[in-house]
């Protein structure tokens, strides 16, 4: 397909994706409505669970707890990221635009990824404070598990948010679609995180599994995104 020259439409795939990323981040920076509610939600989860568990015995369940907080705040962010595009028919404008749909998708994924990673960085000290947490295993493994896990959640989540925005009960559909699909990833994120935190066993298997999961599902998302965007 020939790309028409015009303001905002020139440039490579990477440049188009970057335009989307910077637009999303700028919007979020000015309003901060998604980030604030996400942050507050994760904070509430941390505090409520800290009442429920004794400090001494919380280590084996920490992996699950951390990811529950992140998973649900991710769902909040993802719903908003597409709902924002529905106003003023922006989504329809994307569909008639000659820019490749995959660039839009990549931009959205990277924008969401940055947002969630920021949230995780801010939440980490809170977990340390509330649960007196320290990692027995090497810290870099924890970072890799978190990054891969976040990518797996965000890439699938962005795709399924785009899908659920097309259904009748928009926001309700996303968890229904996203959670079953990501169960394998969630299982290995939780196991991997717990293994690093408690230091029993190496998370290498989980890391490989997560990496494979990311590759397979990222490919599938890119192949099918245009179909979903244009479904009518």
């Amino acid at each position: 397909m020939k790309v028409h020259e015009g303001p905002g439409m020139t440039g490579s795939f990477a440049k188009l994706a970057w335009i989307n990323v910077s637009k999303d981040l700028r919007l979020e920076w000015r309003s901060r409505d998604v980030f604030n509610s996400m942050m507050f939600f994760a904070l509430i989860v941390v505090v409520v669970f800290s009442f429920a568990f004794e400090r001494e015995d919380s280590r084996p369940v920490m992996g699950g707890l951390i990811w529950i907080a992140f998973l649900f705040s991710t769902t909040m962010a993802l719903n908003q990221s597409w709902a924002r595009e529905l106003r003023n028919g922006v989504l329809d404008a994307y569909r008639v635009s000659p820019a490749p749909a995959e660039a839009l998708f990549l931009g959205k994924v990277i924008g969401n990824f940055i947002l969630i990673t920021l949230l995780e960085c801010l939440m980490a000290p809170l977990f340390v404070v509330f649960y007196n947490l320290s990692s027995v295993g090497p810290l870099w493994q924890l970072v890799v598990v978190t990054l891969l896990g976040t990518w797996a959640l965000v890439v699938n989540g962005t795709f399924f948010a785009a899908m659920s925005i097309r259904t009748r009960n928009r926001e309700l559909m996303l968890p229904l679609l996203l959670l079953p699909i990501s169960i394998p990833a969630v299982l290995s994120m939780v196991t991997g995180t717990t293994q690093v935190l408690s230091g029993d066993g190496s998370p290498n298997v989980q890391l490989k599994f997560l990496a494979g999961f990311c590759v397979i599902f990222t490919t599938a998302c890119f192949l099918l995104f245009e179909t979903v965007l244009n479904a009518e």
């Binding site: 899908m163 097309r166 259904t167 009748r168 009960n169 559909m173 229904l176 679609l177 099918l224 179909t227 979903v228 479904a231 009518e232």
Partner: peptide
């Protein structure tokens, strides 16, 4: 998903 999507988009979204 099949039940809650609207009109013509059901089949495409469900296939994906």
């Amino acid at each position: 998903m099949r039940r809650s999507s609207t009109g013509g988009s059901t089949s495409v979204l469900a296939s994906a």
